[in-house]
């Protein structure tokens, strides 16, 4: 098996599906000749031609509308939003149109669209590039939200997303693009959407997370192990819908849980997870389920992002709090 970065795994998945399904179209700002600002589409226009992989004019609402229309013509569009902070520009297309296509048409039309988009903090971008906005989409019924944390997951989840017959927002954390390599098979494989993954087994406490925070959780778990606390780390992988079965199974074993997200505390995915745990497993809990999140400000100007972003120390602190409750 080859060792690949997440960005290479993503390019791999796009290449496989462009080859596999002639209805797949990859487009967006700078995805053609330039191969994407992060090189996610590197070489794809050369390989598949401008008919399949192309640049669009600079307009996210246009990109979203184009994707919706192409889907109605039987294509399987993969429209990139260059940075997810620009999603506000295409919000109606995503939440107002694609997500409601099946419902509105009485289940006679669907929108098999996958929207890949970089997001996430710690890489010193200007404003509105790094924000964790998955909650905006996760609140919308009719659309799935996928956030991989490893190169292996990224490839399998992206292939599953493109093949899914419903719309998917596929969020790629910028900090994970090139920060490490992982095993990625060259062949075609998929990872079922809506299934969480236990990234580390443990019996004492469950840490539920997704995206870059999974790595902070794993780091925290390593340190906690030195104090004889065995943490189980669950990577949600899909934040809408959420795999509660895996979470509850773990909580029933550990009787302690915390939820970690890079996004702000207010509303959001973590709040949802906490609510479901207490509804489904309150009698198994020995302590309240706590959250580690960013504070309720907009994503900070880059000079302050290190302190703003949650890290493994915050996680250790919260785990100790629930363990010593």
């Amino acid at each position: 098996m080859a060792q690949k970065t997440m960005i290479q795994a993503i390019t791999d998945a796009l290449r496989i599906e462009l080859k596999n399904d002639e209805n797949v179209l990859v487009f967006g700002e700078d995805v053609g000749k330039n191969g994407g600002v992060f090189r996610a589409t590197e070489g794809l226009q050369d390989e598949f031609g401008e008919d399949r992989v192309f640049d669009t004019p600079l307009a996210e609402s246009g990109i979203g509308g184009l994707a919706t229309g192409l889907a109605l013509q039987g294509y399987r569009p993969v429209p990139e939003i260059q940075f997810f902070g620009f999603v506000y520009e295409v919000m109606d297309s995503i939440n107002g149109q694609m997500a409601r296509m099946r419902y509105r048409s009485g289940n006679t039309k669907n929108a098999p669209i996958t929207i890949p988009s970089p997001f996430g903090g710690g890489v010193h971008t200007p404003e509105l590039h790094a924000d964790s906005l998955e909650g905006l989409i996760a609140q919308q019924p009719g659309i799935k939200v996928v956030i991989p944390s490893t190169p292996y997951d990224a490839k399998g989840l992206l292939l599953a997303s493109i093949r899914d017959n419903d719309p998917v927002v596929f969020l790629e954390h910028m900090k994970l693009y090139r920060s490490f390599r992982g095993e990625v098979p060259d062949e075609d494989y998929t990872i079922e959407l809506g299934k969480a993954d236990v990234k580390r087994e443990g019996k004492d406490v469950t840490i539920i997370s997704y995206g870059a925070m999974v790595h902070a959780a794993l780091k925290a778990a390593d340190e906690l192990a030195k104090d004889n606390i065995e943490a189980e780390v669950i990577d949600l992988r899909t934040v809408s819908p959420i795999d509660y079965e895996t979470i509850i199974k773990s909580v029933e074993k550990t009787n302690h849980a915390i939820v970690v997200q890079e996004a702000q505390r207010q509303a959001g995915v973590a709040a949802n997870v906490v609510a479901e745990i207490q509804e489904r497993a309150i009698l198994h809990l020995e302590a309240p389920v706590l959250r580690v999140t960013a504070p309720d400000t907009v994503y900070p100007f880059s000079e302050a992002e290190e302190i703003w972003l949650p890290d493994h120390k915050d996680i250790i602190e919260k785990v100790n709090e629930v363990m010593n409750f």
Partner: peptide, 12 residues
């Protein structure tokens, strides 16, 4: 002076 998260909180 370096920017602090508390500055950002008070600017909300």
């Amino acid at each position: 002076p370096k920017q602090k998260v508390t500055d950002l909180i008070s600017n909300m």
